[in-house]
């Protein structure tokens, strides 16, 4: 079936079998920041912004994206506007392999778009559902909170 959506601001149309997941299809389109992980919505490695909300693309059918606005990490990887948020994750959190960073970044971006001054609890909630295999649980939310406090107002 033919599915049309906007991805990172550009119109796109794909012809896909009806049972293909969105993560599969977007990766074949070259959006490699979407990672394969658990494939059941538990690890957060495949997170995208779907109409502004963080969702797991591994449990979304491509057909469900008809007319949607999708954003992936590729949109922001070179953006100076979000450099600070990337630094929060890479420098402050001491992540080793960065496999989980795109998903976490998008979840934090969705949170900061909605709540520019989040509490530690709100950060915990936004990052629940993300698994970092390097640092394991619990995620260093306090460090992320401190880092966000330092750069507050600059996103």
């Amino acid at each position: 079936m033919k599915v049309s959506f906007k991805i990172n601001g550009k119109k796109s149309a794909v012809e896909v079998p009806v049972n293909r997941t969105l993560s599969d299809v977007l990766r074949t389109q070259g959006f490699w920041s979407i990672k394969h992980g658990c494939e059941k919505g538990s690890c957060g490695n495949c997170v995208i912004l779907f109409n502004g909300q963080a969702v797991n693309s591994c449990i979304q059918l491509t057909a469900q994206a008809e007319g949607a606005e999708i954003e992936t990490y590729e949109k922001y990887e070179k953006s100076t506007e979000y450099k600070l948020l990337q630094e929060v994750l890479m420098d402050y959190v001491d992540i080793e392999c960065a496999y989980c960073v795109p998903g976490m970044f998008l979840s934090l971006k969705a949170l900061l778009d909605k709540i520019p001054d989040p509490t530690e609890e709100e950060i915990v909630d936004a990052l629940a559902g993300h698994i970092c295999r390097c640092i394991r649980d619990p995620l260093p939310v306090h460090q992320i909170y401190d880092a966000i406090k330092k750069v507050r107002g600059k996103f």
Partner: peptide, 13 residues
């Protein structure tokens, strides 16, 4: 609703 799933990504959908 919050307790129904701990992941916001799931609750969004």
């Amino acid at each position: 609703a919050l307790l129904s799933n701990h992941s916001r990504m799931i609750r969004n959908v």
